[in-house]
């Protein structure tokens, strides 16, 4: 059958190109274009088909969209391991369980309820007021941050903001585009053959650099103001959908503002000032009402937080 033979010819030729060694993106474009030309000269495809083949081959500028959930999961694990190497996990089962109850319930009402490995929460020992969201849903929050909250709704507001970073894939956006091009080109080559020594080291380096891009952003540089405001807006939606009072986000930011004045560094280094965020948030929260939190909610919050103070 002619079309099947054509497929074999094209696939074979591009396969040969892929296994030919480490190619850069433009090289690969040129290569696949040449495959099309060859096929055209042999009369197997029309020139318009050559064009479309070349066009597809050219679609190689990689963005975070090209990262699969599987890859996001592995990136997230290494980011979390890096964060926890710097900030020791706080080993209190009951507290971690409570934070997971609040966080996983919120996540199920978020704009992205499921990820490859699921949403998981862990308290860190640090007194710094801070929280970190690794891609894929591994979220870490410091004891200092927990101390700055006064009720479950405010804790939920903090966690909802971190869930929003996972939902919006902000961590993956921190990976430098050039890096991604290199990494994913290596991957394309890798997809077609067994690992060879140089590809493994190139892939490992690309992975390591990507993890560094994300952890530097999480721990030192912070996201852009725009991404932070978007995360706040998504957090308001998640809080409302779960049944919490979205005003709690404004309240927790006001409290953070006060705490940060005494403890610079950490969160204040990586986030816009709480007051700026409150100004952006007010229109989204105004007019929203929620039933007063029942005593049981405050009791369980107080019981869990006894281990933090």
């Amino acid at each position: 059958m002619k079309s099947t033979r054509l497929v074999s010819v094209l696939a074979g030729a591009s396969f040969a190109l892929l296994v030919g060694g480490c190619v850069t993106v433009p090289d690969m474009d040129a290569g696949l274009g040449a495959v099309g030309k060859l096929a055209s000269q042999t009369g197997l495809v029309s020139s318009s088909q050559v064009d479309s083949f070349t066009k597809v081959a050219g679609a190689t500028a990689k963005t975070f969209h090209d990262i699969t959930p599987e890859q996001e999961y592995y990136i997230g694990r290494s980011v979390a391991a890096t964060v926890m190497a710097k900030h020791r996990p706080y080993d209190k089962a009951a507290l971690n369980r409570y934070v997971n109850d609040v966080g996983q319930n919120l996540a199920s009402h978020s704009g992205r309820p499921l990820t490859r490995g699921g949403y998981r929460f862990q308290v860190l020992e640090s007194d710094q007021v801070n929280a970190f969201a690794a891609p894929g849903g591994l979220i870490m929050v410091t004891r200092g941050m927990l101390r700055s909250t006064q009720n479950e709704d405010e804790l939920a507001a903090v966690l909802a903001h971190e869930i929003a970073h996972v939902q919006n894939q902000d961590g993956l956006k921190a990976i430098k585009t050039g890096r991604l091009n290199t990494a994913l080109t290596v991957l394309a080559v890798e997809g077609a053959k067994q690992y060879g020594g140089s590809q493994v080291s190139e892939l490992t380096r690309a992975f390591e650099d990507s993890i560094k891009d994300i952890t530097t952003t999480l721990m030192n540089d912070g996201y852009s103001r725009g991404l932070e405001y978007q995360a706040d807006a998504a957090a308001v939606r998640t809080l409302k959908a779960t049944g919490y009072n979205p005003q709690a986000l404004v309240d927790s930011l006001a409290r953070m503002q006060a705490v940060l004045a005494q403890h610079p560094g950490g969160f204040s280094q990586t986030h816009p000032s709480p007051q700026d965020r409150i100004d952006q948030l007010k229109p989204l929260v105004s007019g929203s009402t929620a039933a007063a939190a029942p005593a049981a909610r405050q009791r369980r919050y107080a019981a869990a937080m006894a281990g933090v103070r």
């Binding site: 591009s14 690969m28 081959a57 990262i67 990136i75 394309a188 080559v189 997809g191 892939l203």
Partner: peptide, 12 residues
């Protein structure tokens, strides 16, 4: 594209 299909199978 060939690269995308390859990508879907492997990666980090």
């Amino acid at each position: 594209s060939a690269s995308e299909m390859a990508l879907a199978g492997k990666g980090f």
